[in-house]
Simulated scan of single mutants.
Amino acid sequence: MIAGLIAAAPHVAHQALFGAIAAVGFGVLFNIGPGNLVRCALLGAVALSVRTMGQNAGWSLEAATFVAALTTACAVYLGGPQRGQAPNALSIAGCIAMVPGAFFINALLGFLSLTSLPPEEASLTIATSLTALLRVIFTLGAMGAGLTIPAQLARHRGF
């Protein structure tokens, strides 16, 4: 087991690095202040690291995304004051790099290719495109649930 963790370390570090870069980029797009961009980088690194470790452990993309979003949102709410920044904006900036864009493109291109296929050959393309679209929907739902649970619990401290 330890050997497996050591073997996966470069891949997890790679994902963490690019998660941090993407989170900072989205932080800039979301107009997050310069003082919180470092937090965005850390949150992006945490999100993609947790998701990658979950997938390496055999979890589905959706389950790993849920746990990563939950971890990221908990880190935001337990990490202290945000210095004038809304905690939801930090959570979303940290997690937005986990949106499965490749599955969405595959679904979109598959549905567009249906216009050129004869009806008897379209069933495999429909099934593949629907599968990719469902993965996008369920992954976004898992991410939304993972981000929402800590936000709701933080709002109701007596819960």
Rank of each mutant, 00 (worst) to 15 (best):
N88Y: 12
V28Y: 15
S123A: 15
V67C: 05
R135P: 07
L133N: 06
G44Y: 09
G110Y: 02
A154N: 12
P10A: 14
P100N: 12
I126K: 08
A89H: 06
P34Q: 11
C95S: 08
A142R: 02
T65C: 02
L147W: 07
H14C: 03
L133E: 06
H156K: 12
L61D: 10
I2S: 01
P81E: 10
L78W: 09
A64R: 01
A13N: 00
G44M: 12
T65Q: 01
A102S: 12
A63L: 10
A73Y: 10
G79T: 13
R39P: 01
G58F: 14
I126M: 10
V50G: 02
H11D: 12
G19E: 08
M98I: 12
L17T: 01
H156D: 06
N36K: 11
A8C: 11
C40E: 08
S113M: 13
V28K: 15
A151E: 13
M143Y: 10
R157L: 07
P34W: 07
M98C: 10
L140P: 00
N56R: 13
C95M: 09
V136G: 05
F138W: 13
A89Y: 01
S113N: 15
S113D: 15
I2Y: 00
I2E: 01
F66G: 01
E121L: 08
L134Y: 14
F30H: 08
T52S: 15
G25I: 10
F103G: 02
M143R: 03
S123G: 04
A23H: 02
L17Y: 00
L133I: 10
W59D: 00
V136L: 09
A89W: 02
Q152I: 12
T139R: 00
E120S: 13
T71R: 03
L42E: 01
S116L: 04
I126G: 04
L114I: 02
A3R: 15
L42C: 10
G25M: 11
A22P: 00
L5Y: 03
I21Y: 10
P119G: 07
V38L: 14
Q85R: 08
I92Q: 04
T128N: 14
A13S: 02
S49T: 09
L61F: 04
P87S: 11
F26H: 14
A127W: 07
A22Q: 04
G101W: 14
F30T: 09
L17K: 00
F26L: 13
P118K: 11
E121D: 09
S123V: 10
G27R: 08
A47V: 06
P34R: 15
I6F: 09
A45S: 13
E121K: 08
S129W: 04
S123T: 12
T52F: 11
E121G: 00
P118W: 04
T71M: 09
